[in-house]
Structures are given as structure tokens and as C-alpha cells.
């Protein structure tokens, strides 16, 4: 029982990182209709920015802010300079997936060319350990969970209660109709990339904080879990991604703790398949449905 509870603790931290990343990933698809498979590699790039910052004396929370800024700017530029020209030339969803895979490989190999295939660790102190029952958390893990909760509340408030957030949801639903309401959709899409990019940057450094070491492929590997969480929640649906992240994060860590670490991914994806068998459109799926209607 204590092993199960302890695993829940690990699961909460993993789910927190996954939630930040999955919401960012699904927001990009929701607002722009681009399934950005380079997301994991932008996370890796952020981890390296965090590494540079922390090895040069920047505090860990300052590095988190720097990574958020890097992710936001890098993702927005990626969209403006690379993805948007393809979209304007009429490249469709599947063509864009190939473009994002190519981008992923370019980023990953560039990082490897610069840093090599070595393992890296952030230079920071994870702080003291705290026990809650059988669960053990470090200060930095509490920080990660706090950032995740704050990010989720921020995204929820943005999408639910602000004019800009509603315009983002309207643009995600039907860009042409949004334009006919007077919404400058290009600007809204830019904001979408800024917000999702910031989440990507935060997730990148949070992932690096939670593992003993990372490489040029760490983010790319984590992408599988991000996509799973997003699909589970209903692609394009931010609230769904939060639920998906919680489901995948908790189930994988509990499986690792209770059964064996090698079952971590197996159980997570069995959960994904079972949920999708019962509810093929994902847990919350309005955006996906609307996109199917619009297409």
C-alpha cells in the first residue's frame, strides 16, 4: 500500500509536467490546426537554455522564467517563419505533420551537433525532502506542482473569462467565422503560440529538473506521453489535456512503482487505448468535433 501511495506522489509530479506540456501542445493544435511534433524538441532546447542559465549562476526560478520566455519567442518565430509560409502555400494537416517532423529532426540534430550525445544536469539544489504519508517530495517538486497548478488556472481563466481567450476559442473553432466577427485572427494565433510556447519552455525545464540527467532526445521521447495525454483529453481541448495528463501521469508512475518500471509506458498506453475504445473522440472533444464539421 505504501508503495502505491509513494508512486502516486511520483505520478503527481509527472502528471504536473505532462499537464503543462499537454495543454501547450493541444493549445497549439486548437488555435492553429497544426499538430506540432517538434514540441518535444523545443522542450529539449528549453532544457539546454535552463542548463546554460543555471551553470552561469542564474537561480532555478529565474531559469524557469527565462525558459518560458525562450519557449514563447522560439515557438512564435517557428510558426511565423516556418509553419505559416507552408500553410499559406496550401499545405494541409498531414503535410504539416511531415513539416513538423522535419523541424523536430532539425532541432534535435542541431542540439546534438552543439552539445554532443552527452548527459546533462541542471545545476541547482532540489531543496529539502518533505513527507506526506508515504509520499516524498522535494522543494523543487513542490515548485513544479505549484507552477503546473498556476499554469492550468491561468490557462483556464484566459480561455474561460477573458475576451482574448474567448477569441482564441472562437478562432480555434472557425477562423473564417471569427474574422467575420472582426477578430484579427493572425494576432490571436500569435498569442496562442506565445502562450503555448511559454508552457513548452516551462515544461522543458521542469522535465530537466525532475530527471537526474537529460540529453538531446529527452523532450522528443516525452512527446509520446504528451500526445497520449492530448489525445486522451480530446485533441485541441485544453481542459481535456489536463485530465489526460493526470490519467497518463498517475497510471504510468503507479505501474512503475507497483508492478515494475518497465511497465510504466505499457500501462499508460493500455489506459489510453481502453479510454479511446469507450470514448473515441477523447474525454472532452468539442474542438475536435467542431474541426471535423468545419473540414
Amino acid at each position: 500500500m505504501s508503495l502505491f501511495v509513494a508512486s502516486l506522489g511520483f505520478g503527481l509530479v509527472t502528471a504536473s509536467i505532462l499537464a503543462i506540456a499537454a495543454v501547450g501542445f493541444t493549445l497549439q493544435f486548437g488555435v492553429t490546426n497544426i499538430l506540432n511534433l517538434a514540441f518535444g524538441d523545443v522542450m529539449t532546447a528549453s532544457s539546454f537554455i535552463g542548463y546554460i542559465a543555471t551553470t552561469n549562476g542564474v537561480g532555478i526560478w529565474g531559469a524557469v522564467a527565462l525558459c518560458a520566455l525562450f519557449g514563447a519567442v522560439f515557438s512564435t518565430l517557428l510558426n511565423r517563419l516556418l509553419y505559416t509560409p507552408f500553410v499559406r502555400h496550401g499545405t494541409k494537416l498531414f503535410g504539416m505533420i511531415v513539416v513538423t517532423i522535419a523541424t523536430s529532426l532539425i532541432i534535435q540534430n542541431t542540439i546534438q551537433a552543439i552539445w554532443g550525445p552527452s548527459f546533462f544536469s541542471l545545476k541547482f539544489s532540489p531543496g529539502g525532502s518533505y513527507h506526506i504519508g508515504s509520499m516524498v517530495f522535494t522543494s523543487s517538486q513542490f515548485g513544479i506542482m505549484a507552477i503546473a497548478v498556476a499554469s492550468m488556472l491561468g490557462v483556464y481563466t484566459l480561455l474561460r473569462y477573458t475576451k482574448l481567450g474567448k477569441a482564441m476559442r472562437a478562432t480555434a473553432c472557425d477562423p473564417a467565422l471569427a474574422r467575420s466577427c472582426g477578430i484579427a485572427t493572425d494576432r490571436v494565433v500569435d498569442v496562442g503560440w506565445l502562450v503555448s510556447g511559454a508552457l513548452c519552455g516551462i515544461a522543458g525545464i521542469a522535465l530537466a529538473m525532475n530527471v537526474t540527467s537529460f540529453t538531446s532526445t529527452t523532450g522528443g521521447t516525452f512527446l509520446i506521453a504528451i500526445v497520449a495525454a492530448a489525445v486522451l483529453g480530446g485533441v485541441g481541448q485544453a481542459y481535456g489535456a489536463m485530465l489526460g495528463a493526470l490519467t497518463i501521469g498517475l497510471s504510468s508512475e503507479v505501474a512503475a512503482g507497483v508492478i515494475a518500471p518497465s511497465y510504466k509506458q505499457v500501462v499508460a498506453f493500455v489506459v489510453l487505448v481502453v479510454v479511446l475504445l469507450i470514448r473515441p473522440q477523447g474525454i472532452l472533444s468539442e474542438v475536435a468535433e467542431a474541426k471535423e464539421v468545419a473540414a
Binding site: K163, K166, A170, A176
Partner: peptide, 24 residues
């Protein structure tokens, strides 16, 4: 402009649709 199909934001509530109509 009222399009033939896709004439409302299906994922938004009635009130939110009206708010988007008054975006300007």
C-alpha cells in the same frame, strides 16, 4: 455575414457567441 453552414461557434455558449459577435 451569415454563412450557410458553420454559422455559429459550436464550442462556445450562446452568450459567448454573442460576445464574439460584439468583439469590436
Amino acid at each position: 455575414f451569415v454563412p450557410q453552414v458553420n454559422d455559429v461557434f459550436g464550442t462556445l455558449t450562446v452568450l459567448e457567441n454573442l460576445e464574439m459577435g460584439g468583439y469590436l
